[in-house]
Every structure is written in C-alpha cells, then in structure tokens.
Simulated assay, not measured.
Amino acid sequence: MKDSMSLKDMESYRGRLEVPDDFDSFWSKEIKKIEAKPFKLIKRNFGDNIKNVVFYDLFFKGTDNGIVHAKCIFPAHEKNIPVVFYFHGYMGQALDWVDFMQYAAIGVGVVAMDVRGQQGQSVDNGTYAGNTVLGHIIRGAVDGPDHLFYKNVYLDVYTLIETVADMSRVDKEHLYSWGGSQGGALSLIAAALNPRIKKCATQYPFLSDFKHVLEMGDRGLPYDELFRYFKFYDPFHKTEDKLMRTLSYIDVKNFAHRIKCPVLMFTGLEDDTCFPATQFAIFNRIESPKKHMLLPEYGHEAMFYYVDSAAFNWLFDTKFPENPPDTSSNALE
C-alpha cells in the first residue's frame, strides 16, 4: 500500500505531532549522565595477504549495563583517518568485514555498530515492563521515556562516536554517518546528538512520525509491534495519547532541528514499510544544508549502486560514476 499522501503535500509535511516542550532538555540531561567509559579493542587477523587494512572488534559498556560491539576497519599505518559510522537495518547486524574495505582504499575508516538486542554481538541487559514479545519500538514505553529501549540505543550511538573520536589514529574533525532504514534513523540520530558528525547520509529512515504510521494501519514488520500494543494491551486506545507522547522522545523527526551538518536523504516513493511521508517529516524539519534524492519506482528495498555510489561520492567528495557505463552499439564502435 502506498502512502496516502500526495507528493505535493509531502513536500511541506512536518509530521502529525509536535516536539515535546522538554525534548531538548530531556536529551541534554541524558547525554550529561554519560561518563567516559573504558573500551576494549581486539585486533582481528584475517591472514598475511591483507597488508593495508587493520581490523578491530570494539567493545564498551553502554547505558543500562548494555555491552556495545562495533567492527572497526582502518587503513594501516595511517594517522588522522576520517571515519564513517555505519548503522545497520532493523533486526540485523553490521555487515561483514569485507563489505567495508572499499573505504580503506581511499584512506577512510569505518566503524559499524551492532544494535543491542539484535543479531550482532552487542548485548542488551536492560529490563522492561510491558510487552517484550515482539519488537523494540515500544519496549519500555509503559514506564515512560526514561525506560525506552531506543533511548539506550541512541545513547550508545553518542558514546560510540565519543569513544572513536578519542582514538589516536582518528581525525575527529572528519567524522560522518551513513545507514539505511533503522541505520538511516541512527545515522540521523548520530548527527542530532553529537555535533562531531560533519556529514550525514540516510536512506529511507525508520522510527519517524509514529502517529502517521498508526493512522496508515498495520502493514506488518517492522511497525507491527505498535499495533500489537493496542490490540492486546489497550484495544480501546485509552492510552494512545500517553503512548504517542512517550514515543515522541525517540521519534526521529523530532531530532531534525538539532542537526547542524549537511544531510543527504534517499527516499523510495513506493516505500510501504517506512512511508515516504514519515521521511519527508524528517527532511522538512532539517534546518542545515540538505538534499533529498527521490526514487519514484523504488520501495523499501536494495537500491543497488545508484544510491551507494551517490552517498559515497557525497560523503567523501569523490567522483566515481553513479550510472552504468554506456554499452550501446555506438559506444562499442
């Protein structure tokens, strides 16, 4: 099912609910609670044939006693390395090591975090009242914004950036974020919570405009948990206003005004998972330099090298071709 809103309306749409009055103070207080934490770097050896790249497992303690893991891939024997923080999609984990070696080829490091409680090595040790049967959006919501699962994940993102920025080999003035779906949301959160991020690229970001999602109806994963909450816990929606307010503290559109760096966003107009309107609600609230690249025939799916190369070129000011080579008969003459 396509989004109910026309493209013309989406171009000025800012979402269904406004930012809570205490939103910024809430997040400022949460960030101030974070103390410098020890971290562990464990070097990985993938054989003697790989000489120009070094690999590390990074572990640190996150909020609520979580253990956060990230893969670190750096060009060997280099200092002042720019770093891109890569974030993965919902229920997944960081890509394989080899998928990030392209960055090392141009002298850029990659740090890819596993979201706690999903498929990677990060561990969520939090305890939550209410529904923990399916999904992470509403986990902890019955106890208010202080107890939200994603609050901890967002703070993990902030802490990760601080931890990596302090590494001696890293150029802390050239830090970037990039990801799709849940990863697209976390890329934006990275820029919103930590001003060290100098560029942010995001592909069909998740976790935005929950009220619009509710109005569109259940389309299955990954928002199914929102509808299951009402179906099994509150079928008459007596707590809807309270729940929507609680979730507003992790609604990505509400972080947009905090972003100070340039943003590049990719949206497929056929997306029936993260509805285009929910993505426009983020984009239209961003006050920093921004560019929105629309793909009319694409949904929530792989966008092949068109998007990957466009993001790569934009983040690192490279000029790799974004279109396939001309293989027409004239081109071969």
Rank of each mutant, 00 (worst) to 15 (best):
G130S: 05
G179T: 11
G183P: 03
V98N: 13
A70F: 02
P75E: 01
V115D: 07
Q121K: 13
A112N: 11
I73K: 07
Y103M: 15
F149L: 00
D48W: 11
K71Q: 12
A129V: 06
G107E: 03
V153F: 08
V153R: 06
L95P: 00
V164C: 00
I67C: 10
A141M: 09
V115I: 14
V142W: 07
C72S: 08
F55K: 09
G109L: 01
V108P: 03
A165W: 02
V84L: 01
R169A: 13
D124N: 10
N125I: 04
S177H: 14
P75A: 03
A70R: 01
Y154E: 00
M101I: 14
S168D: 14
V115L: 10
E162M: 04
W178A: 08
G89P: 06
D146A: 07
P82E: 10
H88A: 11
A129L: 08
I50W: 00
L95R: 01
F55W: 10
Q121F: 11
Y86P: 05
L148D: 01
I137R: 07
V157N: 01
F100Q: 02
S181L: 00
V115E: 06
D99F: 15
W97M: 12
D64S: 10
G184S: 04
Y86Q: 09
T159K: 15
G117M: 06
Y150N: 02
V53W: 11
I137Y: 11
M167W: 12
D96W: 02
I161S: 03
Q93D: 15
K71C: 09
D96A: 04
K51V: 13
F74Y: 14
I138N: 05
G117I: 06
Y103T: 14
N131T: 10
E173N: 08
V54M: 13
V111E: 01
Y86R: 08
V142Y: 08
A141K: 05
L155T: 02
P75N: 03
G179M: 10
L58Q: 03
V108N: 03
D57W: 11
G126Q: 07
V111P: 01
D156T: 01
L160W: 11
G144K: 09
